[in-house]
């Protein structure tokens, strides 16, 4: 735990943090997976989470939109406590409905795409706006068409997921998440399930998003992306943040021996 606490306090006072995680703990049975994670992400920041397999990166990401509940500490997204309501010095657990409502601000992209196989690309993108937000179909269709064009799939609205390549599926998944107009996007190894020649097309879409000012937390093994696009890289190992800082620092001059050994393996 060298530098993350300094970045927590480096945020300007006026600007609310997009994500603020304080002392987050999580265990599965006896296995303590997160051992006190502190992380603050400012609006518009792109942060990549690096670390060896099993270090708790996915679990932490899933805690941010409450796909996992946490056992200690707290997380706020855009000023709202995740999973709880604070009142009178106590935290009250939210109802499933309220949790669902809170998740609208957070988009998530999964390693294995998880597109809805019974719906076309366009229907996948329209699904949440229509059924969660109650947007009119014609309007949702227009937005979805625009989003598919934005991820370079203007010609594939009627294709079912099984008819698309991995890279195309992942781009539809990104469009589907964007359709809810999230303030924050979480990516869990979005290119790890892809053939090498398809990685670039997904990273290009993500770079475009970053350039447009989207706040992003990206778990990735693509060091080129982390170095080029991210404002900050956070290195996790064994359920703690070992080192964090601008990519230029962490990649060229890693402080912690575990960071050094990890980087020497992946670069």
């Amino acid at each position: 735990m060298t530098s993350p606490s300094t970045t927590t306090h480096a945020a300007p006072v006026m600007e609310p943090l997009m994500v603020e995680a304080v002392g987050v703990r999580k265990h599965f049975g006896d296995n303590e997976v997160l051992k006190g994670i502190d992380l603050a992400v400012r609006p518009g920041e792109v942060v990549s989470l690096l670390g060896p397999s099993g270090s708790g990166k996915s679990t932490f990401l899933r805690c941010i939109n409450h796909l996992e509940s946490i056992d200690g500490g707290e997380i706020s997204v855009n000023g709202h406590l995740v999973g709880y309501r604070r009142a009178g010095g106590k935290k009250y657990e939210l109802k499933p409905r309220e949790i669902a409502t809170a998740r609208r601000d957070v988009g998530m992209v999964f390693q294995r795409f998880n597109l809805f196989p019974h719906l076309t690309a366009l229907e996948n993108v329209m699904e949440a706006p229509v059924f969660v937000k109650g947007v009119a179909r014609t309007e949702a269709r227009q937005t979805a068409t625009d989003l598919l064009a934005r991820v370079g799939l203007a010609d594939k609205p009627a294709a079912y997921p099984a008819q698309l390549s991995g890279g195309q599926q992942q781009r539809v998944a990104i469009a589907r998440a964007l359709a809810m107009q999230p303030r924050l996007m979480l990516f869990d190894e979005p290119t790890s399930a892809l053939d090498p020649e398809l990685v670039g097309e997904v990273l290009d879409v993500m770079k475009g998003l970053a350039a447009d000012g989207m706040t992003m937390i990206v778990v990735t093994h693509e060091m080129g992306f982390a170095r080029e696009v991210c404002d900050r890289v956070v290195f996790m190992d064994g359920g703690v943040i070992v080192e964090a800082g601008p990519p230029s620092d962490v990649f060229t001059n890693p402080q912690h021996p575990r960071t050094r050994s990890f980087l020497s393996k992946v670069i």
Partner: peptide, 27 residues
């Protein structure tokens, strides 16, 4: 039905009933 389907639905802000109706039962 793959667990990832439920997670994707939840991540999109779908509640339990909507997830059953629109994602789980059709598959």
């Amino acid at each position: 039905v793959d667990r990832g389907q439920v997670e994707a639905a939840h991540a999109l802000g779908m509640g339990p009933a909507l997830t059953y109706r629109r994602v789980i039962l059709p598959q």
